[in-house]
Nucleic acid binder design. Structure first.
Length: 513
DNA sequence: CTAGGGTTAG
């Protein structure tokens, strides 16, 4: 079962810590491996040092099993293993990262209730694991304010437990806060850090630059870069790549290019990711020749395109309807021994369908099946969507009906595709029927489902009906997304001063705060 | 032993 190497205890030597020789974490690839390794470790006498447990935790974080790391951390504290700075930093990072990971929705309601209880009864000694679950749940539920309050409590508890906050602790927290756009709190932490004589470094600065870029505030990000340079910090390839990506996201690919060109002169070695960012930027601006030129340049610069490069290129080519070029690259890359990944197949299927090559998409599905690869339900959602868009309604519905025969269960995405089709065609009753069906099965509608239906109702001009639906939606914790909001605004322009629409917009703005 | 980047989705 488990395939890690476990050397004998007496195999020790030459200055290296015996602990380090004993366990090999690189082969841990899943939850089971992690737990069996942990079990093995705690059965060892004497117990391995916290450093060795840190290596385990770090591996578990690398494979993104945050809850596993948290539960092991919790167990460690219960065992009385003394926790150090490193462990603490890993754990805080878990809290900050795990809100991006899917969590059972059921946890959330419980977590919020539990949190209220803690506040009410001042039950301060919550286990670390529960603590993580709560923070996770709150983030997932969009209640970041509460999550941050909790994080800060943990944070302020550190010195009392004899653990010092260091630049890593602050960087992890600043990263978490800035990706959540909690800039006020970032500022407070930043000042506090300096007051404690802990100074931001290149990673701290880069983290802030990256978050600003992702928010679309690339000019502000550039200001931060200048401050950083002024303070004698040397930006590295990650700092500049983040900034390049920021310019690309704003469509300012020429400015991204300037940075790209200036990097080697500053002694920074461009890597595959720097190229990927710029190639993507060019494609998004439809500058196909520039994108392809860079792509073809990579091998001459000693860089090998990776799967993300190929995915970017394939998608870019399909978007400008250069199907044969895309297919050629797809074959080329496989001939060179590069394996397509899940995203590659999604892009191929979507690209083929979107360019009227539905038959080709079907044969690709067959190919995936023949290769014995996992038939991901997402592939079918893409092809279904393509079929609907190509007006091949019967084929699409037949594909949906065939899912069970392939051992696939429709998920919320395939349902959304179906609901979207009904909604676009104005078949609102049918859309709502399907919504009911998803609720009856254990396949829960999500925010996208509600948005699709709401947009359908709005397009049909039934504004009162839409208001009712919006109330239901908000009642269930889902909010209009940007494209629904845009639709609301454009409808308001066409129906000047329409009270119902105005009310909806007000309702949306006040509820999302 | 701990912190930062790119492709993607109804």
């Amino acid at each position: 079962m488990s395939h890690f190497r476990c050397l004998s205890t007496n195999l020790v030597s030459n200055g290296t810590s015996p602990d380090k020789l004993r366990f090999e974490f690189g082969n841990i690839n899943g939850v089971d491996d992690a737990f069996s390794m942990y079990k093995l470790m705690i059965e060892t006498k004497p117990l391995p040092s916290i450093r060795v447990f840190n290596s385990l935790l770090s591996r578990i974080v690398k494979i993104k099993q945050y809850t596993v790391a948290l539960s092991i951390f919790n167990d460690l504290s219960n065992l009385g293993v003394s926790i150090d700075n490193y462990a603490m930093n890993i754990v805080i990072n878990c809290y900050c990262s795990s809100h991006r990971v899917d969590f059972g929705l059921s946890v959330i309601a419980e977590a919020q209730e539990l949190f209220r209880k803690i506040v009410r009864e001042r039950l301060c000694e919550v286990g670390n694991f529960m603590f993580g679950v709560i923070v996770d749940g709150l983030c997932k539920a969009g209640n970041t304010a509460m999550a941050i309050q909790l994080l800060r409590k943990l944070f302020y508890d550190m010195p009392r437990k004899g653990i010092n906050r260091d630049v890593v602790t602050y960087t992890v927290l600043i990263n978490g806060l800035s990706t959540l756009s909690r800039w006020k709190e970032v500022e407070v932490l930043w000042k506090e850090m300096i007051r404690c004589n802990i100074y931001p470094n290149v990673i701290t600065f880069s983290t802030v630059i990256d978050a600003l870029c992702k928010e679309g505030r690339v000019d502000k990000a550039h200001d931060v870069l200048n401050v950083m340079i002024q303070k004698n910090h040397v930006p590295d390839v990650l700092t500049y790549s983040a900034l390049m990506d920021g310019y690309c996201l704003q469509g300012r690919v020429d400015e991204a290019r300037k940075i790209f060109d200036s990097m080697p002169g500053m002694g920074i070695i461009l890597n595959t990711i720097s190229y990927n960012i710029l190639i993507n930027g060019y494609f998004k601006q439809m500058k196909i020749d520039d994108a392809m030129h860079l792509f073809r340049m990579m091998p001459h610069k000693g860089l090998e395109p990776d799967v993300a490069t190929y995915n970017t290129v394939l998608q870019g080519l399909f978007r400008v309807r250069k199907c044969s070029a895309a297919l050629q690259i797809f074959d080329e890359k496989q001939a060179a021994g590069h394996k397509p990944d899940f995203h590659t197949y999604c892009i191929m299927l979507d690209g083929l369908c979107g360019n009227g090559l539905v038959e080709r998409a079907f044969s690709l599905l067959d190919e995936i099946e023949k290769k014995g690869l996992h038939l991901h339900i997402q592939y079918y959602a893409i092809v279904m969507d393509g079929l609907f868009k190509a007006q091949k309604l019967d084929t699409a519905r037949a594909l949906f009906a065939d899912l069970p025969s392939k051992g696939l269960e429709p998920n919320v995405i395939t349902y959304n595709t179906l609901i979207n089709e009904c909604s676009e065609k104005g078949l609102l009753e049918e859309a709502k029927d399907i919504l009911l069906e998803t609720e009856q099965r254990s396949c829960f509608p999500n925010g996208v489902t509600y948005n699709i239906i709401l947009r359908g109702i709005l397009k049909s001009g039934e504004f009162d009906e839409a208001t009712k639906f919006l109330d239901i939606m908000i009642g269930r914790g889902f909010y209009p997304d940007p494209s629904t909001y845009e639709l609301l605004l454009s409808l308001l322009q066409m129906n000047e001063h329409n009270r119902t629409l105005l009310n909806m917009i007000t309702k949306f703005s006040s509820s999302s705060k």
